[in-house]
Design a binder for these strands. Structure first.
Length: 363
DNA sequence: GCCACCGGTGGC
DNA sequence: GCCACCGGTGGC
């Protein structure tokens, strides 16, 4: 919504969200991309992370809930060398009031164009992945990855083969580090850090990421859809499925091709923390150490909460960005959480580098 | 009845 | 604190 407006340059993707259980399709807005990427023509659906998105037919605007997946290689500030980062930017549907129902762009398997006839109700809209981005290891600018498949391909070897702007020439022949970043963090999105080196799913299989609503006990769930359409949600289930369908094993499918690792939201309070193990309650509300409850970490005051708008200024692009990005997080103690329950309008950012996850927003 | 989503726990 | 796993269930 407004955020988008606020940030001219950020890309906007149109996504459809799923409402309730249904998913709608997603598409990106071409123009948006165009602006960002500067390549209008490319923008057909194929570019979007979601792959599915086809050209702009449905454009929803994204308001707040898009998710972008990024991955970057190192940061200048954080040269965690070797680690590349992927980031996902999530767009949060709720923000808009639900009008749109974007769907996770990258996540809808192309092969399942399933329409969702139903759903028009109001329902809660979950965030979904709006775009996939990877950071150039040289200039640190974020580049949008056109499809989920390409993103998965890059992610699989990101450590050994860091991403560079030139890599994007495969789909954007003219791109170079001299070009403006495709996306920067503006508060309109949620960012998440993806995990590097996750194997691409076996041919015919889909790896799906479902982002949970804010305040859930987990940020997201990964599940694989087998060629048969069976949805599998753990290695145990994969193994069982392979045992029951040896032909896949014969075709070369193995457990090493599966990973249930999920991205981590940069927004630290997005996921509800588990209540501290009940410690024996002491009389008077003091904790085990005799401190007043209120001082317990878990109870952080809501004050710390920075609104998305405020912090959103972090830019992902350019060294500056990364640095800032990292600085903040790097130095901030990751513990304070604020209250969780508000849903913010915006965004969450995921960063791919686990080792250094930062939270942008902290002030 | 199914299943997408969420909660929650055990183990590290 | 994170991860892996899986049970429960509301909504369809």
């Amino acid at each position: 919504m407004d955020e988008a407006a606020a940030q001219p340059r950020s890309l906007k993707l149109t996504i459809k969200f799923k409402r309730d259980k249904n998913i709608s399709n997603c598409s990106t807005t071409a123009d948006h991309l165009n602006n960002v990427a500067g390549e209008p023509n490319d923008l057909d659906g194929s570019h979007l992370p979601g792959s599915l998105a086809t050209s702009s037919q449905d454009q929803v605007e994204l308001n707040s809930s898009e998710v972008v997946e990024n991955h970057s290689t190192e940061n200048e500030e954080n040269p965690s060398s070797g680690n590349s980062q992927y980031q996902l930017v999530l767009y949060d549907p709720a923000v808009n009031g639900g009008e749109a129902n974007p769907e996770p762009i990258g996540y809808r398997p192309p092969s399942f164009p399933r329409p969702h006839p139903f759903s028009n109700q109001a329902p809660r809209v979950l965030p979904s992945v709006g775009a996939f981005t990877v950071q150039c290891a040289n200039c640190f600018k974020w580049r949008l990855i056109p499809t989920k498949e390409k993103y998965e391909e890059l992610r699989e070897h990101i450590i050994e083969q860091p991403f560079l702007c030139e890599t994007a020439r495969e789909w954007r022949p003219e791109i170079s580090c001299d070009d403006a970043p495709d996306i920067t963090q503006d508060g309109s999105r949620l960012w998440a850090i993806d995990k590097p080196n996750i194997a691409q799913p076996p041919p015919g299989w889909q790896r799906l990421l479902r982002i949970r609503g804010e305040g859930s006990s987990k940020f997201a769930d990964v599940y694989y859809v087998a060629p048969t359409g069976k949805r599998l949600r753990s290695m145990v289930e994969i193994q069982r499925f392979l045992n029951e369908h040896p032909r896949y094993v014969e075709e070369g499918v193995s457990l090493s091709q599966f990973s249930f690792q999920i991205p981590r939201p940069l927004q630290e309070n997005y996921v509800r923390k588990r209540p501290a193990p009940a410690r024996a309650a002491l009389p008077n509300g003091a904790d085990a150490h005799g401190m007043p409850e209120s001082l317990d970490p878990p109870q952080v005051h809501p004050i710390a909460w920075s609104s998305p708008h405020v912090d959103t200024d972090l830019q992902l692009s350019g060294p500056g960005l990364s640095s800032r990005y990292f600085e903040t997080s790097a130095f901030k103690p990751k513990k304070k959480k604020t209250s969780s329950k508000r849903r913010y309008n915006g965004d969450i950012v995921f960063n791919g580098n686990e080792a250094n996850v930062e939270e942008p927003r902290q002030i």
